[in-house]
Amino acid sequence: MVDVTAGDGGRGRPDAVVIGGGVIGLTTAVVLAERGMDVRLWSPEDQAETTSAVAGGLVWPYRIEPAAQALDWSVRSFRHFSWLAEQPRSTGVRLLRGRMAGSAPPAAWTALTGTPPRAPLVDMETYLPYLAGRFEAAHGRVERRAARSLHEAAAAAPVVVNCSGLGARELVPDPAMRAVRGQILVVENPGVEEWYVDAGSGASETTYLLPQPYGLILGGTAHEDAEERDPDMATAEAIVRRCAAVRPEVADAKVRAHRVGLRPSRPGVRLESELLSDGRGGESLCVHNYGHGGAGVTVSWGCAVDAARLVGPATGG
């Protein structure tokens, strides 16, 4: 049996270690810490260096399986983001109207977003620091370190939550993990106030315009098994052409930044638990929460709550 007592700092080690400092790891760490656990988050990267920092931030199910479960996670996350949108300056979350072209959303999603849809759009430059601040306020602590193995983390805490994203490919190891390369541009906004997305059907090239406080995001790509992190200028020019076909005024918009991120794709999100040896003759509980593809932000709160439930009584779940 795994011995977990919430808030028991007397043993000299935390109640839980969360591996991964992206939006999935941060959100899960917040949920656990706000439920009374002593949590340490291990990440070798600053928030601004994670794949989550490159995310466009539209809360909408995209490139994630299984679809039915993803919709449930998305609906529950939508409700939390709607609450966060009441504090847009501090959270970076706004509810904006927009248009999703090319495919009809499920009825449960339409019921939430309305027609035309109104969905949360998250400014990741503000949102990730907001999550980190919320984690710190709940007495969580970030440690700048990479997990060399799950067993190393198991030796440090009775609960390990693996939110390592693409890193799970080596850490677990999980050969089902694949990178899906996304490239975007940030340009000066010529006056676009609503979001637009045409994701196609599994297309490697998508078209979207997402107005953020710091500029207009133009996208994008979804290239499977491509891991080049430097922006490709020919790809950037193609993105601008596609977006200009929707809003001609963006054709001459000044480019502020080129960004590339590798989505952590998997045939299905892995959200389940197992027991790990802690190297001391005992066991630690390991909850896996990774493989969210292009919808990490969208499902983050729903998945975090389900991960906390797998942790069990220590979180009140």
Results as ranks from 00 to 15, higher is better:
M1E: 13
D174C: 12
D230L: 15
R13W: 07
L285W: 02
I217A: 07
V23M: 08
A138W: 09
S284L: 02
E136P: 10
R169P: 05
G220I: 04
S43K: 05
F78S: 07
I24Y: 03
E228Y: 06
P248Y: 04
A16R: 07
G282L: 06
C243Y: 07
G293E: 11
L216S: 12
G317L: 01
A70I: 00
C163L: 12
A176F: 12
I19D: 00
A68G: 12
R242D: 14
H292P: 09
G12L: 05
W60K: 08
A153F: 09
G9S: 11
L58Y: 10
S284F: 10
A244I: 02
A67S: 13
P190A: 08
G165L: 04
G220M: 09
A238D: 13
A104F: 04
D46N: 14
D174V: 09
L96W: 12
D72P: 09
E188T: 05
C286L: 05
E228S: 08
R270Q: 09
H288V: 00
G167S: 09
H223S: 11
P44S: 06
D278I: 06
A33V: 02
H258S: 15
S90T: 15
S201W: 12
P264L: 08
P248V: 02
V297R: 11
V187C: 14
W195M: 03
A67I: 07
D198F: 07
A138T: 06
G57L: 03
V23D: 04
A53L: 04
W83H: 15
G294Q: 02
L95K: 07
E224F: 09
G25L: 03
I19L: 04
S103C: 04
T207N: 05
S273T: 08
C163K: 01
G22Y: 01
I64Y: 02
Y214R: 14
K254R: 15
R118L: 07
V297E: 03
H80E: 15
T206V: 12
I19K: 00
E283M: 15
E49T: 05
A101G: 02
T91S: 15
S201F: 14
G215W: 02
D38K: 07
P120S: 07
P213I: 03
A29T: 05
S284N: 05
V23Q: 10
P190K: 04
L128V: 00
G57V: 02
A226I: 06
G140R: 06
T115R: 10
E224K: 14
M233P: 14
A53D: 09
V4R: 14
V59M: 03
A199L: 11
A168S: 14
W301V: 00
A111N: 11
G316A: 04
E65H: 11
Q87C: 07
I64V: 15
E228I: 06
V2Y: 10
M233N: 12
Y62A: 14
V297F: 06
A111E: 13
A245C: 10
R76K: 01
S149N: 09
